[in-house]
Amino acid sequence: MKTSFVMRAGARGYNKLVSTGPLATYVSGHPEAVLTRHSSFNFGPYQAGRPGFGRLRVFGDEVFSGPGCGYNIHRHHNFIICAFVLQGELTHINTVGNIDQLTPGDYYVFSAGSGGKHCEVNLKNDDMHAIYMWFLPDQLLLPPSYTRNRFDALANRNRLVTLVGNADGALRLSQDVTVSRLSSDTEVGFDYTPRSASHGVYVFVLEGEVHCNDATLARRDSSGIWGAERINLRTGPQESDLLIVETAL
């Protein structure tokens, strides 16, 4: 049986973290930096929403503003953390041994596994916008790893591209999860077919408008659907950009 929910942009959890005061060791930046985070699922103090979706536990829509804004280096285990940079430049440092700079279209998969630290920072004056996703792994305490790739929006205009998952050119991760992206400048309609009835699909509108089955989703709205044989998606006539996360439930 098909089941779904729609989450409007304004219904998400919201945190505004500043680099001064009690969070000074957690949030980087000087003299004052502001980090905002809209959470689709429960995270930190946000407990009014859904606990997650399938293997997805965190879906954060984040903006780092001000010189040096970000998260100081801190420890993780197990979670597979992905970042998709939308605007600005993200500097990512991790204890796997990477110092990486990511610009719009770039994305990474950092699997913390048996233990790894990372730092996320915006070293530029312009705001950095990124989507952060955290997935549970399919095995505990895997060797930590880091891979990165680039989504070329121009070359892939009006095509659904697999960014993460089991596909040519996609980053792999140790979980039954696929992340795809469609950047369109005209109306694009298609049916998305989940791998099975026990897979759920989370559609998140980065920009523009998307018709998802019977729902119309505006910028930063989202919908989760499961138990569906296919999901009908249609982008609006203006420029639209959407992320699709398919996950085992």
Binding site: P51, R75, G113, S114, L136, Q139, L140, L141, P143
Partner: peptide, 21 residues
């Protein structure tokens, strides 16, 4: 590691990777 309270833990049924713990 991060001072998250006990009630914000989730029970998981995930096997260990080879050689772990």
């Amino acid at each position: 590691d991060c001072f998250t309270p006990k009630h914000r833990f989730e029970m998981v049924e995930i096997p260990y990777a080879s050689g772990e713990p």
